[in-house]
């Protein structure tokens, strides 16, 4: 340890030194006051002032650099290495966590994509089933079958035959005089007073059919088929292809009373 300042601590044991500024016994407090006021420019004061200036400077610099945000400025090497290690560890941990969260996010995005896809498929399926069940309007290529019956000779079974023929030829949506034809559609009544699903319809009977026109038209026109049978009864039959048939007669979606989905 530096001991050079001991001169001050044991200075009182040096009897040979005359007390320069205190011939009569002064107390310490009086000496202090005398040193402070009045200010005297002596060599001792100037030298001490210079050294104290250096001390104040060092003090201020040190306090400043310590209170700077960079607490690392005055740190020694091993501390810096330790801090660096800690920061590295922390970076590693945060990196790991980031990867984990990224993976989780990807997973969630995938599952939400799948849910979206499933939803789309469900909507599509609902539309397809709606076309079959008659709960949604449909349009597409097809034919219009017009049966005019001035003599009232067309019986419901003939219309049913025509409908079966159309179904067999791949008709996907059918409408007769504004009545949507679905799975449980029935024809009743008598010649000239035909009822479809209990609703009376009158000639001319107009079938709007969506399907492949190239299949539907020949199916009606085959020898001994629907067209010939109807014409035998003095009905006039007209089949016209169209690129866009609109079937917009709708049925309410009815919940079956007894049948339940088996969940398959």
């Amino acid at each position: 340890m530096p001991m050079s300042n001991d001169t001050f601590n044991d200075g009182g044991e040096r009897p040979d030194r005359p007390r320069a500024d205190a011939p009569e016994e002064l107390t310490g407090r009086q000496r202090l006051m005398a040193g402070i006021w009045p200010p005297r420019v002596t060599r001792a004061q100037l030298i001490v002032a210079l050294l104290l200036f250096v001390l104040g400077l060092g003090l201020a610099i040190q306090v400043r650099s310590n209170s700077d945000n960079s607490a690392l400025r005055g740190a020694r090497q091993e501390d810096l290495v330790r801090i660096l290690d800690e920061v590295d560890d922390r970076t590693q941990r945060l990196e790991d966590e980031k990867q984990r969260l990224d993976a989780q996010r990807t997973e969630l995005e995938n599952s939400s994509d799948q849910a979206e896809e499933a939803r789309k498929q469900t909507v599509e399926k609902e539309r397809q089933l709606g076309v079959l069940a008659g709960t949604v309007a449909a349009h597409g290529p097809g034919i219009t079958l017009t049966v005019d019956d001035p003599g009232g000779a067309v019986r419901p079974d003939m219309l049913l035959d025509a409908l079966q023929e159309l179904r067999a030829a791949g008709a996907e949506a059918v409408e007769v005089n504004g009545v949507r034809v679905v799975a449980n559609t029935y024809f009743s009544g008598d010649g000239g007073a035909v009822k479809v699903d209990g609703k009376k319809i009158s000639a001319p009977y107009v079938f709007k059919v969506i399907g492949k026109p190239q299949d539907l038209e020949p199916a009606l026109n085959i020898p001994g088929g629907v067209v010939q049978t109807l014409e035998k009864e003095q009905a006039t039959v007209h089949v016209a292809r169209a690129d866009d048939i609109v079937v917009d007669a709708l049925r309410p979606a009815e919940r079956p009373d007894y049948a339940r989905s088996s969940g398959q």
Partner: peptide, 10 residues
């Protein structure tokens, strides 16, 4: 006094 001033100035 001047010594104290020196410290303050520093």
């Amino acid at each position: 006094m001047i010594a104290v001033l020196g410290l303050v100035v520093g």
